[in-house]
C-alpha cells in the first residue's frame, strides 16, 4: 500500500495567542510549534500500522518553510519512510490542498490521510479539498479504519454515534481520536530519521481564496461570581433570572 500523510505544524497548546500588523498576522514571537496532534497521533500512526500489516510505504507531506523541517524529521523518527516539503508558507486551506493534490496526482497513493483539523485555524477543510481536486471519495473524522478482504471499512463520528461504511481505495480520510494510539519516537527512530529522504519541491502557482483576514481577541470574561455550597437555590435563581440559561 502507498500511503500519504499530510502533516502540519501548530502552536504548542499553551502558546500565547496574540496578533501583529493590525491584527492581520499571528504573532509567532516566542511561540514554539509542534506537530498537529491529529496528524501525528492518529493519521500517521494508523498509516504506519497499515504498512506494518500489509507492507508498503508511508510518505509524509508538509506545505511549509524550512522551520518545519524539525517537525518533519519527527514524523520520520516516528516511522515514516520519506518526506516531502512543498516550499511555501501556507496561505489558506485552498492553497495548501492545491499543493498536496498537485504532488499526489500522479503518484497512485492508495490512502491519503489528513488530521481532522489543525488546532490553530480549526478549519477542517484541507482533506475534503484534496479529495475533490483528485476526484476521490472522502470520509471525515474517521475513528476506525480496517481492511477486510480488500474492502476498506471506515467508521466516522457523527452526532451521537458513528456511521460505518465501505469504501473502495483510493480515498482520502481525515483522522479523529480513536484511529490509533500516540507513538513516542525511540532512539533508533531518531537516529535513522536523520538520513531518511526529505525532498523539497517547488510550489504550484495558485491564488488563495481567502484574503485580508483580521483577528481580534475575545472580550475578557467578567470576574467569576462565587457562591457557597448552601447557596444552591441562589445559583439556580441566577442561572434562571440573570444568565437566563435554564
Amino acid at each position: 500500500m502507498k500511503l500519504l500523510v499530510c502533516i502540519s505544524k501548530t502552536p504548542e497548546t499553551t502558546a500565547k495567542v496574540a496578533f501583529k500588523d493590525n491584527g492581520t498576522m499571528y504573532d509567532t514571537a516566542g511561540v514554539t510549534f509542534m506537530l498537529n496532534p491529529y496528524d501525528e497521533w492518529y493519521a500517521l500512526v494508523r498509516a504506519l500500522e497499515l504498512k506494518e500489516k500489509s507492507g508498503g510505504t508511508v510518505t509524509v507531506i508538509n506545505v511549509g518553510t524550512t522551520e518545519d523541517d524539525v517537525m518533519i524529521r519527527k514524523a520520520l523518527a516516528i516511522g515514516a519512510d520519506d518526506a516531502v516539503r512543498v516550499d511555501a508558507a501556507p496561505r489558506d486551506a485552498y492553497f495548501t490542498a492545491s499543493q498536496i493534490a498537485a504532488f499526489a496526482r500522479d503518484k497512485n497513493f492508495d490512502l491519503i490521510f489528513t488530521g481532522k483539523e489543525t488546532i490553530d485555524y480549526n478549519g477542517s477543510m484541507v482533506g475534503g479539498m484534496i479529495a475533490e481536486m483528485l476526484d476521490l471519495p472522502f470520509i471525515s473524522y474517521v475513528s476506525h479504519l480496517e481492511m477486510e478482504n480488500g474492502i476498506t471499512v471506515v467508521t466516522r463520528d457523527i452526532e451521537g454515534g458513528v456511521e460505518i461504511s465501505e469504501v473502495n481505495l483510493p480515498m482520502v480520510c481525515s483522522a479523529a481520536k480513536g484511529l490509533a494510539e500516540q507513538r513516542i519516537p525511540n532512539m533508533r527512530g531518531i537516529m535513522t530519521s536523520k538520513t531518511k529522504p526529505l525532498s523539497i519541491i517547488k510550489r504550484v502557482e495558485v491564488s488563495p481564496m481567502i484574503q485580508d483576514v483580521r483577528y481580534t481577541l475575545p472580550p475578557q470574561k467578567s470576574a467569576v461570581h462565587m457562591l457557597q455550597p448552601d447557596q444552591m437555590d441562589e445559583l439556580v435563581r441566577l442561572l434562571r433570572e440573570e444568565a437566563k440559561v435554564i
Binding site: V126, G128, M129, E132, Y141, E159, E163, M209, I210
Partner: peptide
C-alpha cells in the same frame, strides 16, 4: 457545521472556487 457539513464544505469550496469559511 455538523458531521454532514464537514464531509461537504471542502469539496464545495473547490467546486465553487470562491470564498469559504467553516464554523
Amino acid at each position: 457545521h455538523t458531521s454532514t457539513g464537514r464531509q461537504l464544505l471542502g469539496r464545495l469550496a473547490v467546486r465553487f472556487r470562491g470564498g469559504f469559511a467553516s464554523g
